[in-house]
């Protein structure tokens, strides 16, 4: 699990708390993510999974505790924060591809504007990545012309184009028609095999069993249970998790 021989953890959350007004959405979260690890976060709606995900690239600020990424506390703002974000990919439930840009431009914008890569080079790499997620032939189309599954694969390619140290996925398949879920999950399993560090909020048990090293079960802002996928799904330890699993298994 130490991809580049570096044994220090990539992400460390210590005593993280977050409120939305009077709502306590993250309660004393302690969590460590190792390099090359694939972590699946699962739990009931409103449990704080998205907030946790977004706190790691500071799309959401926290009001207590510390978050360290690659040995450094998260920068608060400005250029340093932008640089941190360029190192943490993010894939959203609703894709959020840039609607006025072509597929290829979506993938090359970051490398060109943030990393200063030459256009030709960025386009070559962009095409390689689009091929890798199976969208090569759609490069000159606009996002609205693609299916949800295709858009989400482009979103993954857009994240990969920044050569991130980690990718956060917030329910990447929840907005997709059932027949498109697998094509996206296949790409994600491929990434996991290649050693990408990933934090994935998902209820896809198949993905968790195939690709995850660890499952974290979150409810009411707390991490209730942490285990390997096999043990978590076959023998959950807490009643909260048992109850939740019985609901998602029977529907």
């Amino acid at each position: 699990m130490t991809e580049n021989g570096d044994a220090t953890p990539l992400v460390v959350l210590e005593g993280v708390n977050k409120h939305f007004g009077s709502l306590h959405v993250l309660r004393d979260i302690n969590l460590t993510i190792s390099r090359g690890e694939v972590l699946v976060v699962i739990g009931p709606s409103g449990g704080g999974k998205s907030t946790l995900c977004r706190a790691i690239n500071r799309l959401e600020t926290v009001d207590g505790g510390t978050i360290t990424f690659d040995g450094q506390p998260l920068p608060a703002e400005g250029k340093a924060l932008a640089r941190l974000r360029s190192e943490v990919g993010m894939v959203f439930q609703s894709f959020n591809l840039f609607a006025h840009k072509t597929i290829l431009e979506n993938v090359t914008l970051g490398p060109i504007r943030v990393r200063g890569v030459a256009r030709a080079q960025a386009e070559q790499r962009g095409m390689e990545l689009l091929e890798r997620v199976g969208i090569g032939s759609q490069a000159s189309k606009y996002p609205a012309q693609l299916s949800g599954g295709q858009q989400q694969r482009v979103a993954i390619a857009r994240a990969l184009a920044m050569d991130p140290k980690m990718i956060l996925f917030d329910e990447p398949t929840s907005a997709l028609d059932p027949e498109m879920v697998q094509e996206v999950l296949d790409v994600m399993v491929g990434l996991a095999r290649d050693g990408m560090t990933m934090m994935v909020v998902t209820h896809e048990m198949g993905f968790a069993r195939r690709a995850a090293n660890r499952v974290v079960f979150m409810a009411e802002g707390q991490i209730v249970e942490e285990n390997t996928p096999d043990e978590f799904f076959t023998a959950p330890r807490t009643d909260r998790a048992k109850d939740f699993l019985s609901k998602i298994l029977t529907h």
């Binding site: 690239n57 799309l59 932008a82 190192e87 993010m90 959020n96 591809l97 609607a99 970051g110 943030v114």
Partner: peptide, 23 residues
Amino acid sequence: VPLGQAEAARAIGLTFLQSLRLI
């Protein structure tokens, strides 16, 4: 413009002015 556009722009490391100007 949906909020997600700005979030995606920030998430790839664009600064505020870049997100505004480009996205």
